[in-house]
Design a binder for these strands. Structure first.
Lengths: 191, 191
DNA sequence: AGTCGTTATGTACATTTGTACATAACGACT
DNA sequence: AGTCGTTATGTACAAATGTACATAACGACT
């Protein structure tokens, strides 16, 4: 017998678990990160979310729909982090530093985000609706970068960020930060 | 009743299907490209290879072993293509052109290779033995590039190739070749 | 209190999938 | 011709999985 959380004083208690749908979506990402899309089953996700099996099929008509929503929230959250990091930046020199930090830092570079990105990319080359998700994601990155760099440089920089993050994540001997700094400088030009 | 292929004159007919193991491996890549690792089952692969189900479990003790061998051959074949393209190159200017052609051309950029790469990357961040495959792959790329560029430039260029190929494959509006040329030039320096 | 729509739970069933195995075909060798 | 090790085939079975559904709990509203 588990005690139910107390309702806020005076506030109408709408439902027992209001954001269960979002919780299921988050649990799906955990399962994909651990077992891959190949190992993402209704039962594993339900267990991870601490929720009954029937609840999944109620909220999501298919596994594809569930994965679609999960990856969409992932892309939005990552893009939000990207935006936030670039929003605090004043001039181009600071933008340069921010980009280097993004590549070497935690937002783009932790293994969980990277493996989920790969799974998303693989899915996106196969499912057109997921292509829209990756397109929107990349577009937001370019908008954030476009505030400081010209359009062509922005395209190059965006691709460089992708490649450097990937190689840093996959490589056993991660590239030193100084090399990342030098690569960014070569693309965006001398200060 | 299907007629059996005639044995070569005088040559001892060793076995009915000598490279069935390799054929199964190739069929596995086809299935992964079409349905993802998630949809790669013994039965689908057997059907694609035109081979009985039992033959798969005979040649490969597990699906992981089969996928491991399939991705290993993929990585080797792609690296061979990379080597071949760079081997025909004389000076650094030609190397620059070769790199641009690799990014915009067919070796790295067809959607089949890209989706398989993503699946491999996703697998590699989860399975240590696959990490060795991707490591060897990237090491060969760097060796091929290292004949023409200094070590640090090679690292940068390798990452740039990865990122540009990926963005060209995923983007609905592919980046123009001139932008690719400009990006490579910024990394490797003025001619 | 009573009713209704929404959400949650557990169970049951048909299909898919990995796996094991018995049997046979094949080639090499004596 | 006979024997043996290797390879191929088909089938069978148990576990896992997607899916449907009956039942109940919950909150909002009258």
């Amino acid at each position: 017998m588990r005690a139910r959380p107390e309702p806020a004083e005076g506030k109408p208690r709408r439902r027992y678990d209001p954001d269960r749908r979002a919780n299921i979506s988050a649990a799906a990402l955990d399962v994909v990160a651990k077992h891959g899309v190949a190992g993402a089953t209704y039962r594993k996700i339900a267990e991870r979310a601490g929720v009954s099996l029937g609840s999944l099929t109620y909220h999501f008509e298919s596994l594809d729909e569930l994965l679609g929503e999960a990856f969409t929230t992932l892309a939005n959250r990552t893009a939000n982090g990207f935006d936030a990091a670039m929003a605090e930046v004043g001039d181009e020199a600071a933008a340069r530093d921010a980009v280097v930090s993004l590549i070497t830092g935690e937002l783009l570079n932790d293994s969980r985000t990277m493996v989920l990105s790969y799974e998303l990319y693989a899915l996106a080359t196969r499912r057109p609706d997921m292509r829209r998700v990756t397109d929107a994601w990349m577009a937001r990155s370019r908008v954030a970068l476009g505030k400081f760099f010209d359009p062509e440089t922005t395209l190059m920089l965006d691709a460089l960020i992708e490649g450097l993050s990937m190689h840093r994540a996959l490589s056993l001997a991660p590239m030193p930060r100084t090399t990342v700094e030098a690569a960014v400088e070569r693309i965006v030009g001398k200060p």
